[in-house]
Amino acid sequence: MIMSSSPGGSHSSGSSTAQISISGSDEQQMKSDLRQRKRKVSNRESARRSRMRKQNHLDGLLTQASQISKDNSCILANLNVIRQMCINVEGENSVLRAQMDELTHRLNSLNEIIGCLNQIDNYGNAVVDQMMMMKTMNGDDLFNPWNLMYLNQSVCAGNMVMY
């Protein structure tokens, strides 16, 4: 039998050399298995962190969507309030326009009366006739207290001035 030397300085037989080389192969296999297990653990940890990041991102998006929905509801409520205010203002504008038209009509009537009064001669007959004619033409009640602006002006009746 041939003896060979081992790295440890002892002599062993040929069958022990084969055993050492097998155990070297086992050691490499064990190192490979260890690296593979570490890689699997690392991959699992990386996948877990990735899932956590995705979940956190999803939670953030859901929170953001909820906040946007609340903001949208507030904006819609404000819009409805503003629409109602606009409708109210439009109604008030319609009333004011109608009042303006009525007051414009009254002002025109009063200006006509003043014009007629300024055109009369010294005899009072023309004033009374013109006032009665305007009353029947316009359908306005000239003797309504709101239409009596002409009372502050003098009316000539013959040679007598009346207030």
Results as ranks from 00 to 15, higher is better:
Cys156Ser: 04
Arg53Asn: 05
Ser5Ile: 03
Asp101Trp: 04
Ile75Trp: 08
Asp141Thr: 00
Asn125Ala: 10
Ser94Met: 02
Asn138Pro: 00
Arg51Lys: 14
Gln36Asn: 13
Arg97Leu: 14
Asn152Ile: 03
Asn80Trp: 11
Pro7Thr: 04
Arg83Glu: 04
Cys86Ser: 12
Ser4Lys: 13
Asn144Thr: 02
Lys31Ser: 13
Ser25Val: 07
Leu107Arg: 01
Asn125His: 10
Val127Asn: 00
Ser6Asn: 10
Asp59Met: 09
Ser25Tyr: 03
Leu148Gly: 01
Met1Leu: 11
Gln19Glu: 14
Ser12Tyr: 03
Leu58Asn: 09
His57Ala: 14
Lys40Gly: 05
Ile82Ser: 14
Val95Lys: 10
Val155Thr: 07
Asp33Ala: 09
Ser13Asp: 14
Ile75Phe: 11
Glu27Asp: 04
Gly158Val: 02
Arg51Asn: 12
Ser6Gln: 03
Asn111Ser: 08
Ala18Tyr: 05
Thr17Asn: 05
Val127Ala: 09
Val161Gln: 07
Ala47Tyr: 11
Leu62Cys: 06
Ser32Trp: 13
Gly24Arg: 15
Val161Asn: 10
Trp146Phe: 15
Ala47Phe: 10
Leu58Phe: 04
Asn125Pro: 00
Met134Ala: 03
Ser50His: 07
Arg35Pro: 03
His11Met: 13
Leu76Val: 05
Arg35Ser: 15
Arg97Gln: 14
Leu103His: 10
Arg83Ser: 13
Asn118Lys: 07
Arg51Met: 03
Trp146Cys: 09
Ser4Ile: 14
Asp71Lys: 09
Asn138Ala: 06
Ile82Asp: 11
Gly158Arg: 02
Asn43Gln: 10
Asn108Asp: 04
Cys156Asp: 02
Met160Cys: 09
Met149Ala: 08
Gly124Val: 01
Asp59Phe: 12
Tyr150Asp: 02
Leu62Trp: 11
Asp33Cys: 01
